[in-house]
Nucleic acid binder design. Structure first.
Lengths: 360, 360
DNA sequence: GATGGACATGTAATCGATTACATTCGGCAT
DNA sequence: ATGCCGAATGTAATCGATTACATGTCCATC
């Protein structure tokens, strides 16, 4: 025995063992577990005792094969180490796991090979549904996730022209609100630290930035749009770029497309002697936990991260169980501007801060 | 049709469909996919063409049932939103997913019900192995994970008296090193911000703290041991406790059992006017990404987070495939003290900083 | 006392793959 | 010509559950 590769594992009790021990048929055992009310008290007791004695647990693969379900959903995450997604995942996990679903987390990490593997997994029927946090429909070289004909829901990143439910926030509107806040404080020279141009969130937040400026009658200055890619590193580099500007040309405020970049930027310019918010007001986006931990605390758009996850999960469950009926295709959750310590009116001389750094 | 609850999904091609189309038996199809070399060129071509035409993918539940494997491992994480674990998870994911394993992430979140559900899952044969990042063997009310007779590996938190492989760092030694660093700088009044007393990591790090003091001939002062629980919040409260002390009684340095608490503490005392590291040197533990982002950057013990995950995953794969032979039970990975900006010699007047706050 | 219906349980088909064993065929040695 | 061997493929058992349908029992009703 055990001549093949692999480890011999103690054989688990099967339903037939329980049936034999209880002196009933396998059907009765199955029914006792699935719909206890249809078997009479006395039989039920015998069966349950046998279940306990044998330590029986149904084999899920067999059940899945029979009922054509897996009770597993796959969640595609761009980067599991990103705190924003980690918090969305918590909401997803809460909802899904109390509904009895297991979670396979597909950490894409920018790797097409991984993505392809997961697409194959889903196509092979390993998941009853998929939650997309990744801004695009997953693909493998010759397959597309949609071919799996599996319920799909997207969250956080809007995926245009797809007709499955999506749970997002109003990125344009909240970005406009964030920049509007800076304008109300009296800023007129406001930079934008952007995400990767191809990203839909970036496009929407940039649009919000532009709208706010336009409404205030402030001319857009392309030189104030700094390139970024949502990483802390990008924030550091944008900070350096800012420092390289002549003092008079420097903006008095900055809106970053996400918190991590904002924090990287603050750290960099502060280390060089700029005071936040005195010399530069900064607004972030996302509301990650660290936005409230950093120094100074970051004014930011806080997204309902858990709720985004929970809502998307609930939609997916609805899709998986009762079908599409009555589902809203495009759910928007409220996100709010949280005022903290990184924003303040510009210094006396309006338009720029001529005194510059080194005041601490 | 589709009269039952649930959504009708397009039926996927089965192996029999492929066999029919290719004009061969199901066995040949299966063999073509599993061991191409045993079927002759011409047949293989016909089968592969049929596979492509039908879009066939093997049904994993059926295969799992037959071969008694799932190619899934369960990872138990205390808290998925904790950045330390998120990074360990990345290492796990890298190794496991390239080996073809799927990942079910059990986010325990302190909930015994969740834990129980996952134990049942594993006992039901839903996973080929389990990775424990959680410092204890998982339990359900009447079951213990060990009863599942599934390969187990623990990482990060040492689980005493269990005889499965464990991948950790030398917590006692590195904690001693961290405190030793403060002593070398000239500090003699060193506080310790602890974790929950029941936690094994806490116990080991406390032991390291004590050893360092003892070696330096510094008397331990129970009043300098602040209660904590590894959360940012606990750091904030410890910071308040520190501020409540009279200036002369205040320690000049502090070792925190993890980075999040260290960061919370720094933020709090800094907001009250204390300068870090001038008025208080702080050393953390873990080396999370934010330890390098915060202000000032945090001197800390950096754990090889990805590597811990990757190594544990590799051990588990070994256990699952070739059995226990040749496995080290207790693997220690190196962790190093990373010197950054939060530590410095104490101020002139040795023993305490009488000038106190309000210097910025 | 037959009839029928409600209820509890049993029998056996089924889900879709893998694989041990059986079969077929061609070639080669005797 | 016979028999044997090995290669290629086919046949059917098997994994462990769920569940449609069949069966049997008991009691109420006419």
């Amino acid at each position: 025995m055990a001549k093949r590769t692999g480890v011999t594992r103690q054989k688990a009790a099967r339903i037939a063992d329980v049936a034999r021990l209880a002196g009933v048929s396998v059907a009765t055992v199955s029914r006792t577990l699935a719909r206890p009310e249809v078997v009479i008290e006395e039989t039920r007791a015998r069966v349950l005792a046998a279940v306990r004695d044998t330590g029986y647990t149904p084999n899920i693969s067999a059940r899945n094969l029979r009922v054509r379900k897996t009770m597993v959903v796959l969640v595609a995450v761009p980067d599991i180490a990103n705190p924003f997604f980690a918090e969305v995942l918590q909401g997803i996990d809460d909802t899904l796991s109390t509904a009895g679903y297991g979670l396979i987390i597909a950490n894409l990490a920018g790797s097409p090979e991984k993505e392809a593997r997961y697409v194959d997994l889903v196509c092979a029927g390993q998941a009853d549904g998929v939650l997309l946090l990744c801004g695009h429909v997953m693909r493998s070289p010759d397959r597309d996730l949609r071919e799996a004909h599996v319920p799909l829901v997207a969250a956080c990143e809007y995926i245009p022209r797809e007709n499955f439910p999506q749970v997002t926030i109003d990125n344009v509107g909240t970005a406009r609100e964030a920049v509007g806040h800076l304008i109300e404080l009296g800023h007129t020279s406001i930079a934008y630290l952007s995400g990767p141009k191809s990203n839909i969130l970036e496009q929407q937040r940039l649009e919000g930035y532009r709208q706010a400026l336009r409404e205030a009658g402030i001319a857009a200055d392309a030189g104030l749009i700094l390139p970024g890619d949502f990483t802390f590193r990008a924030g550091v580099e944008a900070g350096r770029a800012l420092l390289a500007l002549e003092t008079v040309a420097r903006p008095t405020a900055l809106f970053a497309a996400n918190d991590e970049m904002a924090i990287g930027l603050i750290k960099t310019v502060h280390a060089a002697g700029l005071q936040i918010p005195d010399d530069l007001s900064v607004v972030g986006f996302d509301g990650i936990a660290y936005a409230d931990y950093c120094e100074p605390t970051l004014t930011t758009i806080v997204q309902p991260r858990r709720d985004l996850g929970a809502t998307a999960a609930a939609e997916l469950i609805a899709l998986m169980t009762i079908g599409q009926a009555g589902l809203r295709k495009n759910i928007k959750l409220p996100a709010t501007l949280m005022l903290r310590d990184s924003t303040r009116p510009p210094r006396k001389s309006p338009g720029h801060s001529s005194r510059g750094a080194r005041s601490g």
